[in-house]
């Protein structure tokens, strides 16, 4: 060790402060992320890992067996997302709008109660709804019977045409608390002067919501949209807990997360294939990246103009 040259002394403490976080983050998150992308260009032949270029992707998109499953999962995942956007976020906004009205009593109590499902695990939520909707137990048919709508009942989770929508709605039920809270916070941060100025011009009640509050909370709506997008396109737990890795009936609830799990980990007689799994993970990565970029460059930039 020679004596260091006389330059401004190195501030070692900065490195010491940064090192643990950067090391763990790089080693356990960033490196595996890129390693997974890399592995999607490899395959195992005779117990050796060889580079095969884009072949995995050719199989994934070209081979009918694989591509059918992939597009099915992607279509289901998109529908899953659409339901969240159409049901979860509007309900969340409506609840937040009601909760944020001044002089509403018990609002803290309502908020805490509506947030309860969000803290439960998917395993609990998945099984609880499975039991409640089950034709064996008869809670759902019994309740529909009580209001004279028994003909509406079907074993929703067991029918191909309803299962995915039902699970999406269960997920909406679970996560409505998050958009509600974020929008509620945004509504509270709107300055009173703006609302009072509106009142002077005769804009109150519902029209105040549509004309003043809604444009002002658009940035928060953007945030909940992108959170929903990322959350939905890497969802897995609820489908796995309720329908198993096969995402039945007949793959009708299969989404990208369950598809990747099955491919990578294997199920029943099919062996797991980490390289095809990586290829699916790469596809998910690209999808999420596109969504995030659309949000960051298309949406958020324009929304900035609305902020005060």
């Amino acid at each position: 060790m020679s004596t260091p040259p006389p330059k401004p002394k190195t501030r070692w403490h900065i490195a010491v402060f940064l090192a643990p976080a950067v090391l763990v983050y790089t080693a356990v998150m960033i490196y595996p992320l890129f390693n997974t992308l890399r592995l999607s260009f490899y395959a195992e032949v005779d117990q050796e890992r060889i580079f095969i270029g884009l072949d995995n992707f050719r199989t994934l998109f070209g081979d009918a067996l694989w591509s059918e499953q992939f597009w099915n999962a992607l279509a289901n995942n998109t529908w899953f997302f659409v339901i969240h956007m159409l049901v979860q976020n509007p309900i969340g906004i409506a609840l937040a709008a009601i909760l944020s009205s001044p002089r509403l009593r018990f609002s803290a109590l309502y908020r805490s109660a509506i947030f309860v499902p969000t803290i439960l695990s998917f395993v609990i939520v998945g099984f609880a709804w499975k039991l409640i909707l089950s034709p064996i137990w008869g809670i759902a048919p019994g309740m529909l019977d009580a209001i004279g709508l028994k003909f509406l009942y079907a074993p929703w989770l067991g029918k191909e045409e309803y299962a995915l929508t039902t699970l999406a709605l269960v997920s909406v039920w679970q996560f409505v608390g998050i958009p509600m809270m974020l929008i509620y916070a945004a509504l509270l941060s709107i300055p009173d002067e703006i609302l009072e100025a509106g009142e002077c011009d005769g804009i109150t009640g519902l029209s105040a919501f549509w004309k003043i509050k809604l444009p002002l909370i658009l940035p928060s709506i953007g945030i909940i949209s992108i959170l929903t997008f990322v959350g939905n396109f890497n969802a897995f737990d609820l489908i796995y807990a309720a329908q198993g890795a096969l995402a039945g009936p007949d793959f009708s609830t299969d989404i990208l997360g369950t598809f990747m799990y099955r491919t990578f980990f294997g199920f029943q007689l099919q062996l797991g294939d980490p390289h095809m799994g990586s290829a699916i993970a790469s596809a998910m990565f690209v999808i999420i990246l596109i969504g995030v970029c659309i949000y960051l460059f298309g949406f958020q930039r324009r929304l900035r103009n609305y902020q005060f």
Partner: peptide, 21 residues
């Protein structure tokens, strides 16, 4: 910015390599 990357990209995408590691 480097540390903020992980806010939006879910760690699950890297599962295959994490398991291998």
């Amino acid at each position: 910015l480097y540390l903020a990357l992980g806010i939006m990209i879910p760690i699950r995408i890297g599962t295959v390599a994490i398991l291998e590691m």
